[in-house]
Deep mutational scan, measured.
Amino acid sequence: MSIQHFRVALIPFFAAFCLPVFAHPETLVKVKDAEDQLGARVGYIELDLNSGKILESFRPEERFPMMSTFKVLLCGAVLSRVDAGQEQLGRRIHYSQNDLVEYSPVTEKHLTDGMTVRELCSAAITMSDNTAANLLLTTIGGPKELTAFLHNMGDHVTRLDRWEPELNEAIPNDERDTTMPAAMATTLRKLLTGELLTLASRQQLIDWMEADKVAGPLLRSALPAGWFIADKSGAGERGSRGIIAALGPDGKPSRIVVIYTTGSQATMDERNRQIAEIGASLIKHW
């Protein structure tokens, strides 16, 4: 067993022997301040990774656009098919120029040779490549099948209805392509620590998230040296922004954090800054 596999296998073990965790309302004060600064709703939840206990939450059962955070769930569904012998990570998928959609920095470079399922998941999570996500959605049967996968996990809230990039439209009061912070946090925890996926697939999923290259201005910008984070960000229309993450000190994750916002007129930089400040408060009061 590799060191990384050992780390993920012992996530519940280490967490069980940690000192009790206590909620700190100071972080919620910052979440509410972010709402004021952005002029928009902000949803927040913080779960203990081992027990699933909610440590703090704000608007945990209000719907927010998922945006690209759905790509972690998508690759979880792909990995479940791999575990069941219905898919192979090494299978190569070929596609054409007509398949390319807006923001496809990886797939646009491989029109000639195609990409493997493993490479597509890596591109979808680490670079948020939209064509990679659409190609992977095709392998599982489309958005409705991802929703069905989530329902089978016990998540009857999260739903995907459309493809990239239309799913980022974020129309107010439109339930399409949305989740709730509580539902997303619980589902992410199941994917990373539950028995739904094999140990190898859980490790692969967290490795992809740990290698995320496009979430630097968010929670990662607030992390002290030595902290662990595996995350996936999302951005959408109407001032929408979000991030889902597993993080913790001492090089291992111990909490799940989900943050979503929508309806702001603020710039992307300002949305990023507010999420980073929430992260800084979380870490300060850990």
Rank of each mutant, 00 (worst) to 15 (best):
I171F: 04
L150H: 15
T178Q: 09
Q274I: 05
V258W: 01
M209K: 05
N130D: 03
I229V: 02
D155I: 00
T198C: 11
W208K: 03
A123H: 15
R189P: 12
E145T: 07
A211S: 04
W286V: 04
T131F: 15
E175L: 13
T131L: 06
I244M: 14
A246R: 06
A84C: 03
L223E: 00
L136Q: 15
I54Y: 11
R220E: 04
E210N: 08
M67H: 12
V82M: 01
P25R: 02
G234K: 00
E164A: 02
E26M: 15
A182S: 06
M67C: 15
A34C: 01
R92I: 03
A124Y: 06
T138L: 03
A246V: 07
I256G: 06
E166A: 10
G216T: 06
I93W: 02
R202Q: 08
D99F: 07
M153D: 10
R220Y: 02
A246Q: 04
R63V: 07
L73A: 11
E166W: 13
A133E: 03
M184E: 13
S80D: 02
V72E: 00
D174G: 04
E35S: 04
P25N: 05
L191F: 03
R81G: 06
I244A: 04
P224M: 01
L28G: 13
A133H: 09
T138C: 06
T138S: 09
S51T: 06
H156A: 06
E108A: 00
Q274L: 12
G154A: 07
I206C: 13
V29E: 03
F149Y: 06
F58M: 00
I259Q: 11
I283P: 12
V82S: 11
H24P: 00
G141C: 14
D174R: 04
R81A: 04
S80G: 07
G234P: 00
T116W: 05
K252M: 10
P165E: 00
P65A: 06
D161T: 09
H94C: 08
V72M: 02
P253R: 11
W208T: 04
D250Q: 01
R241E: 07
V214Q: 14
G39E: 07
L79N: 15
L219E: 10
L111Y: 00
A235D: 02
A185L: 05
I54K: 14
F228W: 08
K284P: 04
E87Y: 14
A211V: 02
L223N: 12
A40G: 10
K190S: 15
T261C: 07
P65T: 07
A170V: 10
M180Q: 11
V72Q: 02
T131V: 05
V72A: 11
V101E: 04
T131G: 08
D212H: 12
Q265C: 05
R81L: 07
H156D: 12
P253E: 05
A124H: 02
M184I: 08
V157T: 07
F70S: 06
K32W: 02
S281Q: 07
G248P: 01
T139D: 07
R220P: 04
N50L: 10
R118H: 08
Q265L: 11
R220G: 04
A222Y: 11
A280D: 12
V258D: 07
L137W: 15
M115E: 15
V78K: 14
E277T: 08
P224F: 08
A225G: 07
G141T: 15
G251W: 05
N50Q: 02
V82Q: 08
S221R: 07
M268L: 03
F149S: 05
L55M: 15
K284T: 08
G234T: 09
Q204S: 02
V72I: 02
E102R: 05
G114C: 13
A276I: 13
M184C: 07
T267G: 12
G236E: 08
P249C: 12
L223A: 10
L192C: 09
E87K: 03
L55N: 07
K144Y: 10
T178P: 05
M115I: 15
I93E: 03
A280W: 08
L38K: 00
A133V: 06
A34F: 05
V214L: 14
L120C: 00
R271H: 07
G154H: 06
R159F: 00
L282Y: 01
S233D: 02
P105K: 15
M115V: 10
F70N: 02
G142V: 03
G234N: 04
L188H: 04
S80T: 07
T261W: 12
G114A: 10
P25E: 02
L219F: 13
G242H: 12
L38A: 02
T193K: 02
A124P: 04
I256F: 11
A40Y: 08
I283M: 08
D177S: 05
P60K: 03
D177P: 04
V31Q: 12
D155R: 07
I140K: 09
T126F: 00
G141L: 04
F58D: 01
A133K: 03
E35V: 11
L135F: 14
L111I: 01
V82A: 12
A200K: 14
Y260M: 04
A276E: 13
D207V: 08
D250R: 06
E56S: 14
S240F: 05
E164P: 01
L74Y: 03
A245L: 10
G85M: 15
V101D: 13
A84M: 10
S240V: 07
S233R: 08
E164Y: 02
T179G: 11
T193R: 01
D113Q: 00
H24R: 02
T261M: 04
A123F: 15
R241I: 07
I275T: 13
S233K: 15
Y103A: 02
H94R: 11
E166S: 08
P65G: 06
G90R: 04
A77L: 00
G90P: 06
T186V: 11
D174F: 02
I278S: 14
G239N: 01
M66H: 02
L223Q: 14
A77H: 00
S233E: 11
A183S: 06
Y260L: 07
H285C: 01
G279I: 13
S96I: 00
K232H: 09
A230L: 09
G90Q: 08
G52K: 14
Y95W: 11
A77I: 00
P143K: 11
M209D: 02
E56M: 15
H285G: 03
P217S: 08
E102A: 03
F70I: 01
K71I: 06
E26A: 14
P25I: 04
S240G: 06
E26Q: 08
V106P: 07
Q265F: 14
G114K: 01
R162V: 10
L28Y: 08
L197D: 07
V117G: 08
H110T: 00
R189A: 11
S254K: 11
L28C: 05
A40C: 10
A77K: 00
N98K: 14
S96E: 03
C75Q: 14
G263T: 15
L223P: 11
K109A: 12
Q37G: 13
I140E: 13
L218N: 11
P60A: 06
I54H: 11
K232Q: 14
W163M: 11
Q203P: 07
M153R: 09
I283A: 12
R92G: 04
T267E: 12
K53N: 02
S57G: 13
L74T: 12
A211L: 03
L89R: 06
D207E: 11
S96Y: 00
Q88V: 15
K284A: 07
L111E: 01
P105S: 10
W227A: 08
L219A: 06
T267L: 12
P165T: 10
I244K: 07
S57H: 14
D33M: 01
L199D: 13
A246L: 07
S68C: 06
T107I: 04
T198I: 14
M67W: 09
A245W: 09
W286E: 02
E119R: 12
D231Y: 13
G76N: 12
Q203G: 05
Q204Y: 03
A222P: 09
A276R: 09
D177H: 13
D161G: 07
T193M: 04
G251I: 11
H24M: 15
Y95C: 02
I243G: 08
D155W: 06
N173D: 12
I256C: 12
E56N: 13
E277K: 13
E62Y: 00
R41Y: 10
E102P: 04
H156P: 06
V29S: 04
Q265W: 13
I256A: 10
D231G: 09
L150V: 15
L150G: 13
L137D: 15
T107C: 01
C121H: 02
E210D: 14
V78C: 07
W163D: 13
I206W: 11
P224R: 11
R202Y: 05
T198A: 13
V101Y: 05
T147E: 05
K53F: 06
T267A: 12
C121R: 01
K190G: 15
H151N: 06
L38R: 01
A123T: 15
I259M: 10
L135R: 03
A77W: 00
A276C: 08
P217K: 08
P60E: 04
Q88Y: 08
E56C: 12
E237K: 10
C75M: 09
V42S: 02
L192I: 05
P65F: 00
L219R: 07
L135A: 04
S254E: 03
F228K: 00
L38D: 00
M268P: 02
G242C: 12
